[in-house]
Design a protein around this nucleic acid. Structure first.
Lengths: 147, 147
DNA sequence: TGACACTAATTAGCTTTGCGAACTATACTG
DNA sequence: CAGTATAGTTCGCAAAGCTAATTAGTGTCA
């Protein structure tokens, strides 16, 4: 479908992709449940997926500076979603891990949070879904190899 | 390429797409030039693209509540990027349009702002670029038909 | 005409998220 | 042991978003 003969201009694509991504991100942000915000959810979700990890690792994955992550983690701890512990070998390091309550909340919350997007995705034809499926993987890589 | 036989689960895709989009949006935000922020640029860009428009129309396109857009437009006016005028037929309505200075700044700024993304896109193989090209269009539609 | 409802945009006040700079505590190294 | 490096934290600030309440202008209809 739509085989592209003319080479794609990365700058042009960057322009359009940036707009689309920014708007979708904004729309997703609006779907936040009361209590857990998108940033908190994103961090929590990463912690669950990547297992116990340090604040620094979290910063890298979440593309956020340390002060921001310190605050996000503090919120999650206060909510009982996450536990901190000091590394016995290097006491500067803080490990974080999801609590059972956190995992439970994550499952429920994730479902609701993504309902908005899923609802819209369900209206798409299968081949468009397939495009987005591939795009999701590419987007991940795009940000991953990072300085 | 990569024909998907198994049907794609929209919920699953929603999860991954949300993470990728959120992170990329965050990374893009960090590339802001001093002076013009991503939100301002997005609004300015929309005004240029969609011609003179009202604040309300801008809110719809930008997926933002009126108070937010009022503030963004006020900033743009203060910077001389945009001009406001009162609709003579309905004096509640405010029209906004890009000034020549705004267009100029937009061209420069856009180039720099998208350099980050374009730089990464250039590392991709053509067929991956093609996927993102299609994805960009789909993302636009996804948010467009909206309640 | 005058009262009432509706609409476009603004103002006010709050929250979240992000940053950089400066600091603390711990670990490493020569 | 002095100096340097590293992991997180605290502080203060700014941007961007929201809701609720307000202002100003339009439209309706009795």
């Amino acid at each position: 479908m739509t085989p592209t003969i003319t080479p794609i201009d990365p700058a042009e694509l960057a322009s359009r992709l940036r707009l689309g991504v920014t708007r979708l991100a904004r729309k997703l942000r609006q779907q936040a449940e009361p209590g857990i915000t998108p940033s908190l959810l994103s961090a929590l979700s990463t912690i669950e997926r990547a297992g116990p990890m340090t604040i620094g690792e979290l910063c890298t994955v979440e593309q956020v500076q340390p002060p921001t992550m310190t605050r996000l983690v503090a919120s999650l701890v206060e909510m009982g979603m996450v536990e901190r512990s000091v590394d016995p070998d290097d006491r500067r390091v803080a490990w974080v891990r999801v609590t059972p309550a956190g995992a439970r909340s994550l499952a429920q919350t994730r479902k609701r949070k993504e309902a908005y997007l899923a609802k819209r995705l369900r209206r798409l034809e299968p081949d468009r879904l397939a495009v987005l499926e591939q795009a999701a993987a590419i987007l991940d890589q795009l940000v991953e190899g990072e300085s």
